[in-house]
Design a protein around this nucleic acid. Structure first.
Lengths: 167, 167
DNA sequence: TTTGATGCAAAATGTTTGCAAAGCT
DNA sequence: AGCTTTGCAAACATTTTGCATCAAA
Protein backbone atom coordinates (compact mmCIF):
# COMPACT_ATOMS: atom_id res chain seq x y z
CA UNK A 1 0.00 0.00 0.00
CA UNK A 2 1.66 3.23 -1.13
CA UNK A 3 1.38 6.32 1.02
CA UNK A 4 -1.38 8.83 0.53
CA UNK A 5 -0.23 12.43 0.64
CA UNK A 6 -2.75 15.23 1.01
CA UNK A 7 -0.18 17.62 -0.39
CA UNK A 8 -0.29 15.86 -3.72
CA UNK A 9 -3.75 14.45 -3.19
CA UNK A 10 -2.67 11.08 -4.42
CA UNK A 11 -0.67 8.02 -3.57
CA UNK A 12 3.06 8.62 -3.59
CA UNK A 13 5.67 6.00 -4.02
CA UNK A 14 8.27 5.96 -1.32
CA UNK A 15 11.45 7.90 -2.07
CA UNK A 16 14.38 6.43 -0.25
CA UNK A 17 17.26 8.72 0.61
CA UNK A 18 20.05 7.91 -1.79
CA UNK A 19 22.68 8.02 0.92
CA UNK A 20 21.77 5.33 3.44
CA UNK A 21 18.90 2.90 3.72
CA UNK A 22 17.09 2.42 6.98
CA UNK A 23 18.42 -1.11 7.08
CA UNK A 24 21.99 0.12 6.94
CA UNK A 25 21.36 2.65 9.65
CA UNK A 26 19.67 -0.02 11.75
CA UNK A 27 22.63 -2.38 11.45
CA UNK A 28 25.02 0.44 12.34
CA UNK A 29 22.95 1.51 15.32
CA UNK A 30 22.66 -2.05 16.57
CA UNK A 31 26.42 -2.54 16.26
CA UNK A 32 27.08 0.73 18.08
CA UNK A 33 24.81 -0.48 20.87
CA UNK A 34 27.02 -3.52 21.26
CA UNK A 35 24.87 -6.14 19.57
CA UNK A 36 26.24 -9.11 17.68
CA UNK A 37 24.79 -9.74 14.26
CA UNK A 38 22.39 -12.64 14.28
CA UNK A 39 20.63 -14.10 11.27
CA UNK A 40 17.17 -13.73 12.71
CA UNK A 41 17.56 -10.08 13.41
CA UNK A 42 19.12 -9.41 10.05
CA UNK A 43 16.17 -11.07 8.35
CA UNK A 44 13.68 -8.99 10.33
CA UNK A 45 15.57 -5.77 9.62
CA UNK A 46 15.74 -6.53 5.91
CA UNK A 47 12.06 -7.30 5.80
CA UNK A 48 11.09 -4.11 7.62
CA UNK A 49 13.33 -2.15 5.29
CA UNK A 50 11.18 -3.30 2.38
CA UNK A 51 7.85 -2.35 3.91
CA UNK A 52 5.79 0.72 3.19
CA UNK A 53 3.67 0.32 6.26
CA UNK A 54 3.28 -1.30 9.63
CA UNK A 55 3.19 -5.08 10.12
CA UNK A 56 2.20 -7.29 13.04
CA UNK A 57 4.60 -9.82 14.54
CA UNK A 58 2.62 -12.62 12.91
CA UNK A 59 2.72 -10.93 9.51
CA UNK A 60 6.47 -10.62 9.87
CA UNK A 61 6.76 -14.28 10.82
CA UNK A 62 4.68 -15.35 7.82
CA UNK A 63 6.52 -13.08 5.40
CA UNK A 64 9.86 -14.46 6.52
CA UNK A 65 8.66 -18.02 6.05
CA UNK A 66 7.98 -17.36 2.37
CA UNK A 67 11.50 -17.97 1.20
CA UNK A 68 12.79 -16.56 -2.05
CA UNK A 69 10.33 -13.69 -2.22
CA UNK A 70 11.62 -10.15 -2.29
CA UNK A 71 15.20 -9.24 -1.72
CA UNK A 72 17.20 -9.92 1.40
CA UNK A 73 17.64 -13.01 3.48
CA UNK A 74 14.46 -14.94 4.22
CA UNK A 75 14.55 -17.62 6.87
CA UNK A 76 12.16 -18.86 9.49
CA UNK A 77 12.34 -16.81 12.68
CA UNK A 78 10.53 -17.79 15.84
CA UNK A 79 7.72 -15.65 17.12
CA UNK A 80 9.55 -15.02 20.39
CA UNK A 81 12.62 -13.75 18.57
CA UNK A 82 10.50 -11.46 16.44
CA UNK A 83 9.00 -9.86 19.51
CA UNK A 84 12.41 -9.59 21.14
CA UNK A 85 13.94 -8.04 18.04
CA UNK A 86 11.10 -5.57 17.62
CA UNK A 87 11.47 -4.60 21.24
CA UNK A 88 15.18 -3.92 20.82
CA UNK A 89 14.59 -1.93 17.67
CA UNK A 90 11.91 0.09 19.40
CA UNK A 91 14.28 0.86 22.25
CA UNK A 92 16.78 2.22 19.74
CA UNK A 93 14.01 4.23 18.08
CA UNK A 94 14.52 2.32 14.86
CA UNK A 95 10.96 1.09 14.79
CA UNK A 96 7.77 2.43 16.28
CA UNK A 97 4.62 0.73 17.45
CA UNK A 98 1.37 1.56 15.70
CA UNK A 99 -1.84 0.96 17.62
CA UNK A 100 -4.68 0.50 15.23
CA UNK A 101 -7.36 -0.74 17.58
CA UNK A 102 -6.99 -4.17 16.08
CA UNK A 103 -6.01 -7.15 18.18
CA UNK A 104 -2.32 -7.04 17.39
CA UNK A 105 0.12 -4.18 17.65
CA UNK A 106 1.88 -3.21 14.43
CA UNK A 107 5.47 -2.13 13.98
CA UNK A 108 7.18 -0.11 11.29
CA UNK A 109 10.57 1.41 10.70
CA UNK A 110 11.26 5.01 11.69
CA UNK A 111 13.05 6.98 9.00
CA UNK A 112 15.31 9.78 10.05
CA UNK A 113 14.72 12.23 7.26
CA UNK A 114 11.53 11.01 5.64
CA UNK A 115 8.43 12.87 6.43
CA UNK A 116 6.49 11.52 9.29
CA UNK A 117 3.40 9.54 8.45
CA UNK A 118 0.28 8.32 10.17
CA UNK A 119 -2.40 5.72 9.52
CA UNK A 120 -5.82 5.21 8.04
CA UNK A 121 -7.56 2.08 9.32
CA UNK A 122 -10.58 0.53 7.67
CA UNK A 123 -12.63 -0.87 10.53
CA UNK A 124 -14.52 -3.13 8.14
CA UNK A 125 -11.76 -5.02 6.35
CA UNK A 126 -8.84 -4.11 8.59
CA UNK A 127 -6.60 -2.66 5.90
CA UNK A 128 -4.08 -0.15 7.21
CA UNK A 129 -2.60 2.53 4.98
CA UNK A 130 -0.18 5.35 5.60
CA UNK A 131 -0.83 8.99 4.91
CA UNK A 132 0.94 12.27 5.50
CA UNK A 133 -0.34 15.79 5.88
CA UNK A 134 1.74 18.91 6.30
CA UNK A 135 -0.97 20.98 7.96
CA UNK A 136 -1.56 18.28 10.52
CA UNK A 137 2.12 18.05 11.35
CA UNK A 138 2.42 21.77 11.91
CA UNK A 139 -0.67 21.80 14.10
CA UNK A 140 0.92 19.06 16.17
CA UNK A 141 4.20 20.91 16.34
CA UNK A 142 2.64 24.14 17.57
CA UNK A 143 0.45 22.30 19.99
CA UNK A 144 3.32 20.25 21.40
CA UNK A 145 4.92 23.35 22.81
CA UNK A 146 1.83 24.52 24.62
CA UNK A 147 0.94 21.34 26.37
CA UNK A 148 2.03 20.22 29.85
CA UNK A 149 4.12 17.33 28.51
CA UNK A 150 7.58 17.15 27.00
CA UNK A 151 6.35 15.56 23.78
CA UNK A 152 8.60 13.00 22.14
CA UNK A 153 6.21 11.18 19.83
CA UNK A 154 2.74 11.45 18.47
CA UNK A 155 0.43 8.97 16.88
CA UNK A 156 -2.63 9.71 14.80
CA UNK A 157 -5.07 7.12 13.53
CA UNK A 158 -8.11 7.85 11.39
CA UNK A 159 -10.78 5.16 11.48
CA UNK A 160 -13.50 4.63 8.92
CA UNK A 161 -14.38 2.67 5.81
CA UNK A 162 -12.02 2.32 2.91
CA UNK A 163 -13.18 2.89 -0.64
CA UNK A 164 -13.89 -0.79 -1.22
CA UNK A 165 -15.85 -1.24 1.99
CA UNK A 166 -17.75 2.05 1.79
CA UNK A 167 -19.60 0.96 -1.38
CA UNK B 1 -7.00 15.10 35.89
CA UNK B 2 -8.72 18.15 34.38
CA UNK B 3 -8.50 18.74 30.66
CA UNK B 4 -5.78 20.91 29.20
CA UNK B 5 -6.97 23.31 26.53
CA UNK B 6 -4.50 25.05 24.26
CA UNK B 7 -7.12 27.65 23.54
CA UNK B 8 -7.01 28.81 27.11
CA UNK B 9 -3.52 27.52 27.74
CA UNK B 10 -4.56 26.03 31.02
CA UNK B 11 -6.51 23.25 32.63
CA UNK B 12 -10.25 23.63 32.25
CA UNK B 13 -12.81 22.12 34.50
CA UNK B 14 -15.42 20.14 32.68
CA UNK B 15 -18.63 22.00 31.89
CA UNK B 16 -21.53 19.65 31.72
CA UNK B 17 -24.44 20.63 29.49
CA UNK B 18 -27.24 21.71 31.80
CA UNK B 19 -29.85 19.83 29.81
CA UNK B 20 -28.86 16.18 29.92
CA UNK B 21 -25.97 14.31 31.40
CA UNK B 22 -24.15 11.67 29.43
CA UNK B 23 -25.43 9.09 31.89
CA UNK B 24 -29.02 10.04 31.15
CA UNK B 25 -28.43 9.89 27.46
CA UNK B 26 -26.72 6.54 27.87
CA UNK B 27 -29.65 5.08 29.78
CA UNK B 28 -32.07 6.41 27.19
CA UNK B 29 -30.03 5.06 24.30
CA UNK B 30 -29.73 1.67 25.96
CA UNK B 31 -33.47 1.54 26.56
CA UNK B 32 -34.15 2.53 22.97
CA UNK B 33 -31.90 -0.29 21.85
CA UNK B 34 -34.11 -2.70 23.79
CA UNK B 35 -31.95 -3.32 26.81
CA UNK B 36 -33.25 -4.04 30.25
CA UNK B 37 -31.74 -2.08 33.09
CA UNK B 38 -29.33 -4.15 35.11
CA UNK B 39 -27.52 -3.02 38.22
CA UNK B 40 -24.06 -3.75 36.93
CA UNK B 41 -24.50 -1.70 33.81
CA UNK B 42 -26.07 1.16 35.72
CA UNK B 43 -23.09 1.22 38.07
CA UNK B 44 -20.63 1.30 35.18
CA UNK B 45 -22.56 4.04 33.40
CA UNK B 46 -22.71 6.15 36.54
CA UNK B 47 -19.02 5.71 37.13
CA UNK B 48 -18.10 6.68 33.57
CA UNK B 49 -20.35 9.68 33.85
CA UNK B 50 -18.17 10.97 36.68
CA UNK B 51 -14.86 10.56 34.90
CA UNK B 52 -12.85 13.26 33.20
CA UNK B 53 -10.72 10.82 31.31
CA UNK B 54 -10.32 7.28 30.09
CA UNK B 55 -10.20 4.28 32.44
CA UNK B 56 -9.17 0.68 31.96
CA UNK B 57 -11.52 -2.20 32.75
CA UNK B 58 -9.51 -2.98 35.86
CA UNK B 59 -9.64 0.63 37.05
CA UNK B 60 -13.40 0.54 36.61
CA UNK B 61 -13.64 -2.69 38.55
CA UNK B 62 -11.54 -1.30 41.38
CA UNK B 63 -13.40 2.00 41.48
CA UNK B 64 -16.72 0.21 41.73
CA UNK B 65 -15.48 -1.94 44.57
CA UNK B 66 -14.81 1.13 46.68
CA UNK B 67 -18.34 1.52 47.96
CA UNK B 68 -19.62 4.80 49.27
CA UNK B 69 -17.22 6.98 47.34
CA UNK B 70 -18.53 9.49 44.85
CA UNK B 71 -22.12 9.65 43.85
CA UNK B 72 -24.13 6.96 42.15
CA UNK B 73 -24.53 3.33 42.88
CA UNK B 74 -21.34 1.47 43.70
CA UNK B 75 -21.39 -2.29 43.75
CA UNK B 76 -18.99 -5.00 42.79
CA UNK B 77 -19.21 -5.83 39.10
CA UNK B 78 -17.38 -8.76 37.58
CA UNK B 79 -14.61 -8.14 35.11
CA UNK B 80 -16.45 -10.03 32.38
CA UNK B 81 -19.52 -7.88 32.79
CA UNK B 82 -17.43 -4.74 32.64
CA UNK B 83 -15.97 -5.80 29.32
CA UNK B 84 -19.39 -6.81 28.01
CA UNK B 85 -20.92 -3.52 29.11
CA UNK B 86 -18.10 -1.46 27.61
CA UNK B 87 -18.48 -3.37 24.38
CA UNK B 88 -22.22 -2.63 24.23
CA UNK B 89 -21.63 1.03 25.02
CA UNK B 90 -18.98 1.23 22.36
CA UNK B 91 -21.36 -0.27 19.81
CA UNK B 92 -23.88 2.44 20.64
CA UNK B 93 -21.12 5.05 20.35
CA UNK B 94 -21.60 6.00 23.96
CA UNK B 95 -18.03 5.21 24.85
CA UNK B 96 -14.85 5.10 22.82
CA UNK B 97 -11.69 3.10 23.19
CA UNK B 98 -8.45 4.95 23.78
CA UNK B 99 -5.24 3.19 22.84
CA UNK B 100 -2.40 4.63 24.81
CA UNK B 101 0.32 2.14 24.03
CA UNK B 102 -0.02 0.82 27.54
CA UNK B 103 -0.94 -2.77 28.21
CA UNK B 104 -4.65 -2.19 28.68
CA UNK B 105 -7.13 -0.42 26.47
CA UNK B 106 -8.90 2.53 28.06
CA UNK B 107 -12.50 3.58 27.67
CA UNK B 108 -14.23 6.90 28.12
CA UNK B 109 -17.61 8.35 27.49
CA UNK B 110 -18.37 10.17 24.25
CA UNK B 111 -20.16 13.44 24.73
CA UNK B 112 -22.47 14.66 22.05
CA UNK B 113 -21.90 18.36 22.27
CA UNK B 114 -18.68 18.66 24.21
CA UNK B 115 -15.63 19.41 22.26
CA UNK B 116 -13.68 16.42 21.21
CA UNK B 117 -10.55 15.67 23.18
CA UNK B 118 -7.41 13.62 22.81
CA UNK B 119 -4.71 12.31 25.11
CA UNK B 120 -1.31 13.03 26.51
CA UNK B 121 0.49 9.97 27.85
CA UNK B 122 3.52 10.08 30.09
CA UNK B 123 5.60 7.09 29.07
CA UNK B 124 7.50 7.23 32.35
CA UNK B 125 4.76 7.17 34.99
CA UNK B 126 1.84 6.17 32.79
CA UNK B 127 -0.44 9.09 33.64
CA UNK B 128 -2.99 9.87 30.94
CA UNK B 129 -4.52 13.32 30.59
CA UNK B 130 -6.95 14.83 28.14
CA UNK B 131 -6.32 17.87 26.00
CA UNK B 132 -8.14 19.70 23.26
CA UNK B 133 -6.89 21.90 20.47
CA UNK B 134 -9.01 23.76 17.96
CA UNK B 135 -6.31 24.05 15.29
CA UNK B 136 -5.68 20.33 15.44
CA UNK B 137 -9.36 19.55 15.05
CA UNK B 138 -9.70 21.72 11.99
CA UNK B 139 -6.59 20.22 10.42
CA UNK B 140 -8.15 16.79 10.96
CA UNK B 141 -11.45 17.93 9.55
CA UNK B 142 -9.92 19.31 6.37
CA UNK B 143 -7.70 16.32 5.97
CA UNK B 144 -10.52 13.85 6.47
CA UNK B 145 -12.17 14.98 3.27
CA UNK B 146 -9.10 14.55 1.16
CA UNK B 147 -8.14 11.07 2.21
CA UNK B 148 -9.22 7.78 0.58
CA UNK B 149 -11.28 6.70 3.59
CA UNK B 150 -14.73 7.63 4.79
CA UNK B 151 -13.51 8.84 8.18
CA UNK B 152 -15.73 8.19 11.17
CA UNK B 153 -13.33 8.61 14.07
CA UNK B 154 -9.86 9.82 14.81
CA UNK B 155 -7.55 9.26 17.68
CA UNK B 156 -4.51 11.31 18.59
CA UNK B 157 -2.05 10.45 21.32
CA UNK B 158 0.98 12.51 22.28
CA UNK B 159 3.67 10.62 24.11
CA UNK B 160 6.39 12.09 26.26
CA UNK B 161 7.29 12.95 29.84
CA UNK B 162 4.91 14.75 32.13
CA UNK B 163 6.03 17.70 34.20
CA UNK B 164 6.80 15.56 37.23
CA UNK B 165 8.77 12.98 35.28
CA UNK B 166 10.65 15.45 33.06
CA UNK B 167 12.49 16.95 36.07
C1' DT C 1 35.77 -18.98 24.80
C1' DT C 2 32.94 -15.66 26.31
C1' DT C 3 28.89 -13.30 25.57
C1' DG C 4 24.96 -12.32 23.05
C1' DA C 5 21.27 -14.46 19.88
C1' DT C 6 17.87 -17.87 19.05
C1' DG C 7 14.18 -21.49 19.40
C1' DC C 8 11.12 -23.98 22.06
C1' DA C 9 7.89 -24.53 25.51
C1' DA C 10 5.70 -22.67 29.29
C1' DA C 11 3.94 -18.70 31.60
C1' DA C 12 1.80 -14.27 32.00
C1' DT C 13 -1.45 -10.96 30.60
C1' DG C 14 -5.64 -8.98 28.86
C1' DT C 15 -9.98 -10.13 26.93
C1' DT C 16 -13.82 -13.13 25.50
C1' DT C 17 -17.10 -16.87 25.93
C1' DG C 18 -20.26 -20.80 27.80
C1' DC C 19 -23.34 -21.61 30.96
C1' DA C 20 -26.31 -21.54 34.95
C1' DA C 21 -28.45 -18.46 38.24
C1' DA C 22 -30.56 -14.14 39.08
C1' DG C 23 -33.05 -9.93 37.71
C1' DC C 24 -36.31 -6.99 34.76
C1' DT C 25 -40.68 -6.07 32.79
C1' DA D 1 -43.12 -16.43 31.96
C1' DG D 2 -39.84 -15.01 28.92
C1' DC D 3 -36.48 -12.42 28.10
C1' DT D 4 -31.92 -10.00 29.34
C1' DT D 5 -28.17 -9.48 32.55
C1' DT D 6 -24.74 -11.13 35.51
C1' DG D 7 -20.94 -13.86 37.76
C1' DC D 8 -18.00 -17.53 37.58
C1' DA D 9 -14.75 -20.31 35.49
C1' DA D 10 -12.76 -21.77 31.52
C1' DA D 11 -11.14 -20.61 27.04
C1' DC D 12 -8.66 -17.66 24.07
C1' DA D 13 -5.17 -14.67 21.82
C1' DT D 14 -1.23 -12.04 22.16
C1' DT D 15 3.01 -11.21 24.19
C1' DT D 16 6.75 -12.33 27.46
C1' DT D 17 9.99 -15.28 29.87
C1' DG D 18 13.13 -19.36 31.31
C1' DC D 19 16.33 -22.06 29.74
C1' DA D 20 19.19 -24.91 26.86
C1' DT D 21 21.67 -24.47 22.64
C1' DC D 22 23.89 -22.04 19.00
C1' DA D 23 26.72 -18.58 16.84
C1' DA D 24 29.46 -14.26 16.54
C1' DA D 25 33.52 -11.86 17.90
Amino acid sequence: MPMFSTLEGKFMSHDRAATETWGERAEATLAAAGHKRGGARRAVVELLDDQECALTAVEIEDALREVGKGKGERRRVSRASIYRILDELEGLRLVQRVETGQAMVRYERVNEHDEHHHHLVCDDCGVVMPFSDKALESAIETLSERVPLKVSEHEIVLHGSCQDCAL
